[in-house]
């Protein structure tokens, strides 16, 4: 199943025993470092760090579904960067007539577009590292340790668990509908999708009711206990990311004049 691929990555990640909050602080420090600079050097360094961490975390394996998701995201980022490049005023590098419109590619726009693109790609690599090495339940348990209300973390964990069950149900319903020609033609497809959507809603209610019974049966006392709590964050996990942030910030300062064009 596609949905389980991230879990598989997490289970085999060498960084799974790093404290989730520590990884979060490190990721935030790296992401913020890319945003606090105008130099393309910093995002390039962060991209290198992110790529190395993600590659080690995933042991150089990227499930196909995530590869497609990354390509999809990169395409969106590329289009966004292109629009920025075309809409930012400055000294013209190229111009093109497009019917009644004249498009100007400017030096400033190009530089900004490339910077935005590099930032986004670098941050994506950091997010991939974080997601591939941290389980959702552990992440929310860790957030609870720093004051996230229990109701929110438990709701998130339940949503996480039940989303798989509902996704399985939807997959089954789509297959069943296909077997009965439910997707033959646009009109039929729209009708089938609307039926499936309504059905998923009613099944989710049913599932929730049975889940509640099961919670009672297992002596649920109002909060979800965690058997293996994730490692707690130590001071090192604050000091090192802050140090990395300032190093990158300084690097950005040193290379602030670097431009692509």
């Amino acid at each position: 199943m596609h949905e389980t691929s991230m879990d598989r990555l997490y289970l085999h990640s060498p960084f799974r025993n790093w404290p989730p909050l520590g990884k979060l602080v490190l990721s935030l420090a790296l992401i913020l470092a890319t945003l606090f600079t105008n130099s393309p050097a910093v995002p390039l360094v962060v991209l290198a760090i992110g790529t190395i961490l993600f590659s080690l975390s995933s042991k150089f394996y990227l499930p196909r579904i995530f590869l497609f998701a990354c390509i999809d995201t990169l395409l969106v980022i590329l289009i966004g960067a292109l629009i920025i490049a075309l809409l930012t005023p400055g000294s013209t590098l190229l111009s093109a007539e497009l019917g009644p419109l004249t498009l100007y590619l400017t030096r400033e726009g190009m530089n900004l577009g490339v910077l935005v693109f590099l930032r986004a790609v670098a941050d994506l690599s950091i997010l991939l590292f974080f997601a591939s090495s941290t389980s959702i339940p552990h992440f929310f348990t860790a957030l609870r340790q720093v004051g996230l209300p229990a109701s929110i973390s438990e709701l998130a964990v339940l949503i996480y668990r039940y989303s798989f069950l509902l996704a399985d149900q939807v997959e089954l319903m789509i297959t069943a509908a296909q077997c009965r020609l439910g997707f033959k033609g646009l009109r039929n497809s729209i009708r089938t999708i609307s039926i499936i959507t309504a059905c998923v809603f009613s099944r989710s209610m049913d599932l929730a009711e049975r889940g509640q019974y099961a919670l009672y049966c297992r002596n649920f006392q109002g909060s979800f206990p965690s058997f293996k709590t994730p490692p707690k964050m130590t001071a090192v996990w604050v000091i090192v990311p802050i140090a990395i942030f300032f190093i990158l910030y300084y690097l950005g300062y040193l290379t602030s004049g670097w431009l692509v064009l």
């Binding site: 389980s135 049975r210 019974y213 099961a214 919670l215 297992r218 649920f220 206990p225 058997f227």
Partner: peptide
């Protein structure tokens, strides 16, 4: 329960088996 999906809440096997005893 008849359907195990009705009563498995946790993300991993051991967490789910530990759910009841922890509640005790």
């Amino acid at each position: 329960f008849q359907n195990p999906d009705d009563q498995i809440f946790s993300a991993t096997v051991e967490e789910d088996v530990a759910f009841g005893p922890l509640n005790l």
